[in-house]
Design a binder for these strands. Structure first.
Lengths: 213, 213
DNA sequence: CGTCACGTTGAGTAGATTCAATTGAGGTGG
DNA sequence: CCACCTCAATTGAATCTACTCAACGTGACG
């Protein structure tokens, strides 16, 4: 739907037409985070930008009673950590062993040109996710998730899920049991195949796409 | 929670520290949209920016079968319409009689410095809304909504709701009936009072805040 | 080979939805 | 200015989807 016509993506006039490469300065070191390690916490002072080198990161928020909503997963190559003020509003954790390049803009540097496209991309993705959480049922949510992960990994048949069922549930606003049941149903319908716990194969892409609308 | 300490909001170093006024050029005309009028549609070519002069706007997406998710409301003073590429991914409609200032940046203009703070603000708001849709029950959602609307109107006791129950439902991922039932319950509990259909008074702000977490 | 965390499956429940009927508010025309 | 009309909102009853709680499997790892 609404397919991008050409290879070259057209941009609105208010965006820089020749986006600058993101990191130009001296090479910044890569920090390593083991599985489950906190990268930053809600309430902490923000300021740095983070680029995933390898592994995967979850961004989430907690309610007082422990309910958790994961607002985004970030895979290799993606940048996260920017905030609208000097405080982090979310938690960021490494899902698996993860390498992250931490970049701190020198005081006074204006990164707007580099950051705006990323912020807009994140905004679009968040808004699309709102539709999933607000108006789709369990099967549709899981289908949309599998399609999203597939597309972010190049649209291959085989999709790697770096995160646990628990993470998937907290991303989709479902319980771990419901996620499991839906995957079983999709498997029984012949839509997907479970290669291993964290690796699935998409057998009927069209069906999956139709489910996720 | 995580209160902003001083009047002057501290910003991360990667943001412009002295944000430029948004519109500097020659005064742009104000377009008028009657209630329900479309401002732009999904799939249309994007490019302009819109600032609400008076009235209110809803931003939404549709599923094939007509289910609708409103991702944001925009009130007087707010800016919307920016996209990550040249296509609108959402619909924008006037909720009531609404005046909108349409601004088209001349080709080649880089509005990053002005837009980034708005995009980041929108991103934060969308991500917070994800928590509401993903992990909160009906009462919590409505409470969070009322608190949000109150704060966006200056934190007064009396809150104007420019939108219908239908719009509220499609924003909160609930049916119109559920929204109505919850409002009745809040009324019975003495938390709010209905001055008219679209105007409520908050009697127990603390209770409401605690419900919305 | 045993342990432990993670995942799956099952039964019963709760909360929100659906469908239907009623009430109420706002706007229009006489 | 009032009566009427229409659409929006509220209320009620029955249903259904996803959740909760519990038991059971399974894969990874020492």
């Amino acid at each position: 739907m609404y397919a991008q016509a050409s290879a070259k993506i057209e941009l609105p006039s208010y965006l820089p037409q020749n986006p600058a490469p993101f990191f130009e300065g001296p090479a910044t070191p890569v920090s390593f985070f083991p599985a489950g390690a906190e990268i930053y916490a809600q309430g902490e002072k923000a300021g740095a930008l983070y680029q995933v080198e390898f592994g995967a990161v979850r961004i989430y928020r907690l309610l007082a009673d422990g309910r958790r909503q994961i607002s985004a997963f970030h895979l290799a190559g993606e940048t996260f950590g920017f905030e609208s003020d000097a405080t982090h509003h979310f938690f960021a954790e490494a899902i698996n062993a993860t390498g992250v390049r931490v970049f701190r803009a020198p005081s006074g540097t204006d990164m707007s040109r580099q950051l705006l496209p990323l912020a807009l991309k994140g905004l679009t993705r968040a808004q699309e996710h709102l539709l999933v959480l607000g108006r789709q049922n369990a099967i549709e949510r899981v289908a949309a998730f599998l399609v999203e992960m597939s597309e972010r990994q190049g649209g291959l048949q085989q999709v790697e899920l770096p995160m646990s069922r628990n993470d998937i549930g907290d991303y989709l606003g479902l319980t771990i049991e419901t996620v499991s049941r839906v995957l079983t149903r999709l498997k029984e319908k012949g839509v997907i195949r479970l290669l291993s716990l964290r690796s699935i194969e998409i057998l009927k892409r069209d069906t999956l796409l139709a489910m996720g609308e």
